[in-house]
Design a protein around this nucleic acid. Structure first.
Lengths: 151, 151
DNA sequence: TTATATGCAAACAATTTGCATCCTG
DNA sequence: CAGGATGCAAATTGTTTGCATATAA
């Protein structure tokens, strides 16, 4: 089975449950996000969508993403500087490492984070409902190509 | 001594070393950031600056922040949704907890993060040069006022 | 059949830039 | 006095909105 997110059937159900409709545009946006493995910006999604459905508009892409985010089907990533990127929401929190040379985004899960949250909740009396962790650096490939900082 | 960042003398030196100039506008922006304890947006800085120097322009504020960031004197925070916020750069990495009810930003240092970085560097062959951690939740005060999620 | 979605164009907000003028070094 | 910095207005970029029309249920 696909690990890249909910099936069309589930999505249809989720949308309908909220009185929203399943349209070809929405299906397309979601499919692109699944096919490309996520981390796409609204504009990238729009360009890709145009290849299969030339009359789709950028605002439709934004609106679709908005609806999906509201339903918990899609997550928006707020990466440094750039515009936002979107990915299919999956179970389990994960975070991102971003390569400063090639822009690649690598996902990781992190046990330390849970520990950190507990620790901080205690230290500051904060009730932590979510966390965003971004690590900036250089990926293996780029380092092999001589990119990155000198050690 | 002030723990809120470099002294004017240091700043002057840093600027001059790069052929940049020390102007009243730049001094003002930096001072406001120090006085207010940081976490201000460009626009907030602009408004505050206007009180002391009505003819200053928003673009000057942006340009000052840009120069300071380039010199490592100021850090830009990219918080969820909102516009960017800026703070005086200090030694030692710290991160931010943001209260979803009152918007307050609380800084914290975190030993787990260093550990996490080592761990991930090893697991993925990534050379991590920096990290940004944001925890979202509800601060003690807001929880006392009944804000926040139900347990 | 009827409310939700779409496409398009226009509106927005945050940030950047061009340019004549000003002022620091 | 020369080149960097400023103020102002106009341009850009990413995103949102209004509205008439199209379409899913």
């Amino acid at each position: 089975m696909s690990s890249s997110g909910a099936e069309l059937k589930d999505i249809t159900r989720t949308l309908r449950a909220q009185g929203r409709r399943v349209t070809p545009q929405r299906r397309l946006v979601l499919r692109l996000l699944q096919e490309q493995g996520g981390h796409l910006s609204a504009d990238e999604l729009y360009r890709l969508a145009c290849q299969r459905r030339p009359r789709i508009s950028l605002s439709t892409v934004y609106r679709a993403l908005d609806v999906f985010e509201g339903l918990g089907l899609v997550r928006a990533l707020h990466l440094e500087g750039e515009h936002h990127r979107y990915e299919i929401a999956r179970d389990g929190e994960h975070h991102h490492m971003i390569c400063l040379a090639c822009g690649r985004v690598i996902e990781f899960e992190c046990g330390h984070c849970a520990e950190m949250n507990r620790d901080l909740a205690e230290r500051y009396g904060f009730d932590i409902t979510g966390s965003r962790v971004q690590l900036l650096g250089y990926c293996t490939d780029c380092r092999a190509r001589g990119e990155g900082r000198v050690h």
